[in-house]
Computed example of a mutant assay.
Amino acid sequence: MDDYGPETYGELNADVYDEWHAIDPTEAVRFLAELVKEGPAGPVLELAVGTGRVTIPLAAQGVDLRGIDASEAMVARMRAKPGGERIPVTIGDMADVAPDTDDQFAMVFVVFSTFFFLMTQEEQVRCFANVAQRLLPGGRFVLECPMPDVARYDRDQRVEAHHVGLDQVRLTAVRHDPVAQRFEGHHVLITNGGIRLAPAFMRYAWPSELDLMARLAGLECRGRWGGWRREPFRGQGNYVTVYEKPATPAS
């Protein structure tokens, strides 16, 4: 696993990502579009833009979208979709935020569980700091994250079946490191033609830890919800947090 880098997940999963993670982006797009209207005028950046599941429909609403992603294969999938070819994308580590431009952003966002693909606490802290530096005063950093459910792991490991059919079986096999707060796993696709492995590693963080990262970067928490519909957060499932850069620096 020493060869696992920021681009690895996307390069090995791009061709099946949309099929395996067919999540309706409607509510996320509505939430983000409303937030853009409330904030300062300026472009919006998606970290780990991937295949454009959220960015393409958000751009279709007239939002000035940019993206960054470490995987050329994922971005190629986005480019092949209607509207995807018009969105400027930088190939690079999302912790660097926007290394090839001096643009300031009205909003930066990252969805699904992708922020946790930054594999160390140091990388996650660096991402927060870089986001804060690139946000306009009053700009927002929006994260969708899964609440870690470590109780699922018996002896710090878990195998789960996601699909069982006549011609294929899809599993995940994961080991949990509670000290490093890491999940190290594989998607395993078994078919009559053979076995395919696609690694997926994550370094999870608790909501309070994310809040501390934000505070260190000079951002303030403006709200946390149990989803894109602003339902109450009850400590489980995916949740959405909005951080804001103060309009005036703290004295």
Rank of each mutant, 00 (worst) to 15 (best):
V174W: 08
R175T: 09
H176Q: 01
H176Y: 05
H176V: 00
H176A: 01
D177W: 00
P178C: 03
A180I: 00
A180S: 08
Q181W: 00
F183Q: 03
F183V: 01
E184I: 06
E184R: 09
V188R: 06
V188I: 15
L189G: 11
I190H: 10
T191C: 12
T191N: 11
G193L: 10
G194E: 11
I195P: 04
I195G: 03
A198N: 05
F201A: 01
Y204A: 01
P207V: 01
P207Y: 00
E209W: 07
E209D: 12
L210I: 05
L212F: 07
L212M: 11
M213F: 15
M213N: 11
M213H: 13
M213W: 12
A214D: 04
A217V: 10
A217T: 05
A217N: 10
G218L: 02
L219A: 06
L219P: 02
L219W: 04
E220Y: 05
C221G: 08
R222C: 15
R222M: 15
W225M: 09
W225R: 07
W225K: 08
G227N: 03
G227P: 06
W228G: 10
R229K: 13
R230G: 06
E231K: 14
E231F: 10
P232W: 09
R234Y: 06
R234T: 15
Q236N: 09
Q236V: 09
G237C: 13
Y239C: 04
Y239A: 07
Y239H: 14
Y239N: 02
